[in-house]
Design a protein around this nucleic acid. Structure first.
Length: 864
RNA sequence: GCCGGGGUGGCGGAAUGGUAGACGCGGCGGUCUCAAAAACCGUUGAUGAAAAUCGUGCGGGUUCGAGUCCCGCCCCCGGCACCA
């Protein structure tokens, strides 16, 4: 073995040996604890992995390898999220079939993952587009259908005119398609929906059961958007017409000076209005229809609206208030109608100002105050001008007014959610077919289990039709089927969103070969929940919410015994690449939100440097700033790359990729190789049996102390995802051993302590730099692989320092330090502190008032 | 606007209310070399000759003691955004 890190000489060798030994196959030792470490299901893109992906996979690998060494049964699988628009669109562009293309891309991903030494059990791998997998995706669809959680409905949908398909609300950001960036249009098309709204409350409540970043939990809570309020009926004056409103501020009901219906509200048609009014209303409704969603929700836009001519009666005081139509009231939230209280709501205030509607105050900071500055939107206040409710604090009035409304039987207290049902159907080819047959009568039948999977037909052309139907609709062999009575029926031609496929893959990994069931419940019970789930924060809402929902449905069906799939979640930070931009030329114009024109590195090289702005942005193929694992491994070695990814920053922080740091890791590994090479002749493999019988000396005690301290901290740091400090502590350990190990003849106690230290070093290194660790392990003549060796344990007593440095401060300011034996009494601390030479001048002319002793840490002398 | 997460040397970052800056990068000085690279040793928050003083975005507070806790701001990143 060399005395330096020469990755080209041994890394590939070890990867081959691991493969030959089938080292990563999931162990299922009876009685052993389990650990399920999982990375987000990746879509295998044609660009291959970047080191940004490795930032996700390496840390998970480190924790899984440590758990394996600690004797856990570790499940660490990997598969591919193969269905969906990215694959289909790229296949169309390249003129290949997505299945064949995905196969290639997935194989490349696997090679890259293997190149960096990630310990996946590939025997469990699958793609979501494998019929043996999506058979069961269809089966779960059936389960939802039978439980009344999947339904078809004619709805106004978000239509993506670029991808030619519908999108779920979650996939629309600021009126644009998240994926394609196209402006989303409204269309009315029958769609398959999942009733996720039925689970809204549980999806909020059970966030308390999981160990996730607070930010992600909050994003989910916000997305679900629970609000408590009162829904009540407003009667229209002079008419039988009525409509419901929902408000979270029932306490402000006496301040209602108008009502607003959304332009699409069905009650509009039955309002008692004149012909003239009717014409005005129709005109406004037509205008509203023309507006796109982003125009309509633009925050800079002035409010618009029209008076209907009708009035409604405020049930609280009998006042007749005008009914307006305005598009700032959304048809899709609550009841699509509101009571407007301009005194205490900014939107209503803006509207009232514009249209000259009265604004009155009904809440104030104190019960005595007559007129607060309006709009006064705080809930911290008291009711005024509110009849018998005047004087009550807001919170109290909300309860009593709610009860009063309920007593009158015109409304109820209600909980409202922003969350809408999950739109799951897609009018595209490359997805999991929805296993439904439409009968002649227009009924729907589920395809029986024994006829699953409904396989995607192999076709030549699968471009979207653009007319709102799936390309599958044009394939007679697929569409024409017989129903359960043997009559001609029509197969459902929509496919499922990719998010459906990724909503249960973590269950399939527990039992991937099962041909009889989606999974054996006993096996799922054995492995689930995922103990550590690692991936990017960009899936905070969609994937995690959907997967939680499916898990709860399967729980309700009695198929699994856990309600939350992912016990602990960690989000890695992004790796940013240096990206050149230049200012636009005369005939060029910048897109919205861009402040430069993207360049390639080649372009940048021959461009005047003063015209280039370098910016850090997420590595992506389109930006041309990707560093591949092949490049990094080729130049520095897999272990150096792995360690650098761990060391460079805290796991969740973004990283600006610079190559200088990586060579520091090669140097570090070389120092380890050198240290092990030097100590090898002294290494006593049986140190563990001999060491209890040897009388320790100062040097051996020191070596053992730093060994046990390092073992403790590294173990804790890996456990708490503090990989950067795990790496730091190994560096410190190497520095300490280089300092402490004597160069001459060693005593027996020292030999044993050194052997223990060297063994611990190699084993602690193993999760982070497994190739090097195995190379070193072998050079020490130790048998097998480090991954099968036992993770070092630490003895707290050996880790304890015997001498500690105590800080002495006077009035909180550090003045001196001194050494003291561990366990010294408070008096000893005090005496030693007062004896410190630098302390006396600061006490001069003062009276010592108090002495604070924190044993082993600090002595603070308080004097004045 | 609302909800999260941040703000610490030249840089990445470390620090259960108890010696701020661990570990690493970079810099500086040295050893080795004809020289360079590599490797190794020393040094490196600021001001100061030193003693010392100052120092974790800003302003207050709690405490014997605050990067850490509390209150009020500023800035950066991410998410949501007319949700009644």
């Amino acid at each position: 073995m060399a005395d330096r890190y020469e990755p080209g000489n041994f890394e590939a060798k070890w990867r081959n040996r691991w493969q030959e030994a089938d080292l990563f196959r999931t162990r299922e030792v009876p009685g052993a604890p389990k650990f399920y470490g999982l990375d987000f299901f990746p879509y295998p893109s044609g660009a291959g992995l970047s080191i940004g992906h490795c930032r996700n996979y390496v840390p998970t690998d480190v924790i899984c390898r440590m758990k394996a060494m600690q004797g856990f049964n570790v499940l660490h699988p990997m598969g591919f999220d193969a269905f969906g628009l990215p694959a289909e669109n790229e296949a169309i562009k390249r003129g290949t079939h997505p299945a064949e293309m995905i196969e290639r891309y997935a194989a490349r991903y696997r090679e890259q993952m293997e190149l960096i030494g990630v310990s996946y059990d590939w025997s469990r791998s699958f793609k979501s587009s494998d019929p043996s997998y999506y058979k069961w995706t269809q089966w779960i669809f059936g389960l939802l259908y039978n439980r009344g959680l999947a339904y078809r409905k004619q709805v106004a949908v978000n239509w993506d005119p670029v991808d030619n398909t519908v999108l779920a609300d979650e996939e629309v950001v600021g009126g644009r398609a998240e994926r394609s960036g196209a402006l989303v249009e409204k269309r009315f098309i029958p769609q398959w929906m999942f009733k996720i709204t039925e689970y809204a409350q549980r999806l909020i409540d059970d966030l308390d059961l999981v160990d996730w970043p607070e930010g992600i939990k909050n994003q989910q809570r916000n997305w679900i958007g629970r609000s408590e309020g009162v829904q009540f009926t407003m009667k229209v004056d002079d008419s039988k017409a009525e409509f419901d409103v929902f408000t979270t501020r029932i306490d402000t009901i006496f301040g209602m000076t108008f009502c607003v219906l959304s332009p699409e509200h069905p009650a509009v048609a039955s309002l008692p209005v004149s012909e003239e009014d009717r014409a005005r209303i129709a005109e406004y409704q037509a205008e509203a229809k023309l507006l796109s969603d982003i125009d309509r929700t633009s925050t800079t836009r002035q409010k618009t609206g029209v008076f209907t001519g009708a009035r409604a009666i405020n049930p609280a005081n009998g006042e007749r208030v005008p009914i307006w139509l305005a598009d700032y009231v959304l048809a899709t939230y609550g009841t699509g109608a509101i009571m407007a209280v301009p005194g205490h709501d900014e939107r209503d205030f803006e509207f009232a100002e514009k249209f000259g509607i009265p604004v009155i105050a009904v809440i104030a900071e104190t019960a005595e105050l007559e007129t607060p500055e309006l709009p006064f939107v705080s809930k911290d206040g008291f009711l005024i001008n509110s009849g018998e409710y005047s004087g009550l604090p807001v919170a109290v009035a909300q309860v009593s007014l709610g009860e009063w409304i309920e007593g009158l039987d015109i409304g109820t207290r209600k909980i409202q959610y922003k969350l809408r049902d999950w739109l799951v159907s897609r009018q595209r080819y490359w997805g999991c077919p929805i296993p439904i047959v439409h009968t002649k009568e227009g009924d729907m039948e589920l395809v029986p289990v024994d006829q699953l999977p409904v396989e995607l037909p192999a076709v030549e052309r699968y471009e979207p039709s653009g007319d709102g139907t799936s390309p599958l609709a044009a394939i007679p062999d697929f569409v024409n089927v017989t129903d359960s009575d043997g009559r001609l029926g029509r197969r459902e031609t929509d496919t499922m969103s990719g998010f459906a496929c990724s909503s249960w893959y973590f269950l399939r990994f527990c039992d991937p070969e099962n041909h009889e069931q989606a999974f054996n419940p006993a096996k799922v019970a054995e492995w689930m929940p995922v103990d550590c789930y690692v991936g990017g924060a960009e899936h905070a809402v969609m994937h995690l919410l959907y997967a939680r929902f499916w898990t709860k449905v399967l729980y309700d069906a009695g198929l699994i015994s856990i309600q939350e799939p992912f016990q602990r979640l960690q989000n890695q930070g992004q790796i940013l690449g240096r990206t050149p931009y230049r200012s636009p030329r005369e005939n060029e114009r910048l897109g919205v939100g861009e402040d430069g024109i993207l360049m390639s590195y080649a372009e940048a090289a021959e461009h005047p440097p003063e015209d280039i702005t370098w910016r850090w942005s997420r590595m992506s193929k389109s930006k041309g700033n990707v560093v591949s694992p092949e490049e990094a491994v080729g130049e520095h070695g897999a272990d150096a790359l792995r360690l650098y990814l761990l060391f460079v920053a805290p796991f969740s922080a973004d990283v600006e990729w610079k190559t200088e740091g990586i060579s520091a890791m090669s140097r570090f590994l070389s120092r380890i190789f050198k240290l092990v090479d030097t100590q090898k002749p002294r290494f006593e493999p049986a140190w563990k049996n001999l060491i209890p019988f040897e009388e320790p000396d100062d040097v051996s005690r020191k070596i053992r102390r730093v060994t046990h301290q390092t073992v403790r901290v590294c173990t804790e740091d890996i456990e708490r995802f503090s990989f950067n400090t795990y790496a730091s502590w190994m560096m410190k350990f190497v520095n300490a051993l280089n300092d402490e190990i004597p160069t001459g003849e060693l005593t027996v106690a020292q030999t044993l302590a050194v052997s223990e230290a060297i063994e611990a070093l190699v084993l602690l290194l193993a999760p982070g730099a497994p190739h090097s660790a195995d190379e070193l392990w072998e050079s020490l003549n130790m048998p097998g692989f480090t991954m099968n060796a036992e993770w070092p344990n630490f003895d707290p007593e050996l880790a304890v320092e015997d001498l500690v440095t105590i800080a002495v401060s006077v009035n909180g300011k550090l003045r001196d330090t001194f050494q003291l034996a561990v366990g010294a009494s408070d008096e000893e601390h005090e005496t030693a502190a007062l004896a410190c030479p630098k302390v006396a001048p600061h006490l001069e002319g003062k009276t010592l008032r108090k002495v604070i002793v924190v044993a082993g840490k600090v002595v603070n002398l308080v004097a004045n």
